[in-house]
């Protein structure tokens, strides 16, 4: 799993099964056979991490209802629907967590800092939401300290609680998000996942936290715009077209066939150029 230096996009390693063919694709950095890391299951337990894996086939494209009422650290309430209208990055955490949750929020902040194409707040929003009914605005403030946000959440990033704890089940079930309290570890076991919602509130992508970098974030936000991307904003369009999501690795990878097809298009055109050049040479020789 050595990251290839050619493109920062991948942390792909080289798969050994295609010794010779590999050389051909080195320039594109072949995506490695990294398995996505699905949850924060400590090595000490004997729980299969697959247990918290989201059944993506079933939940991609699901539309979440926008009527949830949320409360932020200051106790002010707002609706989830108010955050939509542009892509929303949803992170589910619990605020008494001292392990993975602050980390994934911090990591998210770091990787979003590297997203230059989209501006947080203007082009997309982030929402951290607790799934622990025991959480309160106090525990949220503690959590913000803990995660390094200080007292003020970043621009375009809301950290909040569900106003009605009964909504927790409704929301997580509609997203296919599973979590359990493990008394032995004295912690919640849950998937480390960032959920991308389209401007209409439909799930467009689940990104598993461990190995997500800025480029993945940028691409997933771009693709969350979905139908709104058009050739009019050509760069975004091309960017979205050149990458496709890799379910095995949980990351985006280059859409190779596109480039191979482009190459062959050039091949055809260069053949006609070659033919014309040969004929020109021949004609000149005949004249001399």
């Amino acid at each position: 799993m050595t990251p290839l230096p050619l493109f920062g996009v991948f942390s792909g390693g080289r798969s050994s099964r295609l010794g010779f063919g590999m050389a051909l694709f080195m320039m594109f950095a072949w995506p490695g056979s990294v398995q996505a890391n699905y949850g924060n299951i400590p090595a000490s337990t004997h729980i299969d991490p697959e247990l918290v894996r989201i059944d993506e086939d079933k939940f991609l494209g699901v539309r979440i209802s926008s009527d949830y009422i949320l409360r932020d650290a200051g106790g002010e309430s707002f609706t989830l629907g108010g955050l939509l209208g542009r892509p929303l990055l949803l992170v589910l955490s619990y605020y008494s967590c001292d392990g993975a949750c602050p980390t994934i929020n911090r990591n998210l902040r770091d990787s979003l800092a590297g997203v230059n194409r989209w501006e947080q707040g203007r082009d997309y929003r982030v929402l951290t939401l607790s799934f622990d009914p025991h959480d309160t605005p106090e525990s949220l403030r503690m959590f913000m300290q803990h995660a390094g946000f200080g007292t003020q959440s970043p621009e375009g990033w809301s950290l909040a609680l569900l106003n009605d704890p009964a909504d927790i089940g409704r929301l997580t079930e509609s997203l296919g998000y599973k979590f359990f309290w493990s008394p032995r570890d004295a912690m919640f076991l849950h998937p480390n996942v960032y959920i991308l919602l389209s401007p209409e509130g439909r799930v467009t992508r689940y990104l598993y936290g461990a190995s997500i970098n800025s480029t993945d974030m940028e691409l997933s936000i771009t693709k969350a715009y979905g139908n709104e991307i058009s050739p009019a904003n050509a760069v975004n369009f091309l960017l979205a077209a050149c990458y496709s999501y890799n379910y095995r690795d949980g990351k985006y990878s280059i859409n190779y066939p596109l480039f191979i097809a482009l190459g062959s298009l050039l091949l055809g055109i260069s053949m006609i150029t070659g033919g014309v050049l040969v004929m020109k040479k021949r004609k000149r020789r005949e004249i001399i």
Binding site: Y247, K251, I254, N255, Y256, P257
Partner: peptide, 12 residues
């Protein structure tokens, strides 16, 4: 190349 499981795309 065309397997979504490996980052490919059926529609391409």
């Amino acid at each position: 190349f065309y397997d979504p499981g490996q980052g490919g795309d059926v529609l391409l």
